[in-house]
Simulated assay, not measured.
Amino acid sequence: MPDLRFLGMAALAAILIAPSAGLAQEETPESLPDFAGRDETFGYCIGCHSMKVVSRQGMERSRWDETLNWMTEKHGMPAPDADMRKTLLDYLAQAFPPKAPSQGGGWVNPFAPKP
Rank of each mutant, 00 (worst) to 15 (best):
P2A: 02
P2W: 12
L4W: 06
L4M: 14
L7G: 07
L7Y: 12
M9Y: 08
A10C: 11
L12M: 10
L12H: 06
A13E: 08
A13Q: 05
A13H: 04
A14H: 13
I15G: 11
L16H: 02
L16Y: 07
I17Q: 08
P19E: 03
S20I: 03
S20N: 14
A21Y: 12
A21P: 13
G22V: 03
L23I: 09
L23T: 08
E26I: 01
E26L: 07
E26K: 03
E27I: 03
T28N: 12
E30T: 03
S31W: 03
S31N: 15
L32Q: 05
L32W: 04
F35A: 13
G37K: 01
D39Y: 10
D39E: 13
T41Q: 03
G43I: 11
G43Y: 05
Y44F: 15
C45V: 09
G47V: 06
C48E: 03
H49G: 11
S50P: 10
M51P: 07
S55F: 02
R56F: 12
G58L: 15
G58W: 01
E60S: 11
R61V: 14
R61D: 04
R63K: 08
W64D: 01
D65P: 00
E66Q: 11
E66V: 01
T67Q: 02
L68E: 04
N69S: 07
W70G: 07
T72D: 14
T72L: 03
K74L: 15
H75R: 01
M77H: 13
D81S: 00
A82D: 14
R85Q: 13
K86D: 12
T87V: 04
L88I: 14
L88Y: 02
L88K: 00
D90W: 00
D90S: 11
Y91G: 03
L92C: 14
Q94R: 11
A95K: 02
P101E: 14
G104D: 14
G104F: 15
W107C: 12
W107M: 09
V108D: 15
F111S: 13
F111H: 06
A112L: 00
A112P: 04
K114D: 15
K114R: 12
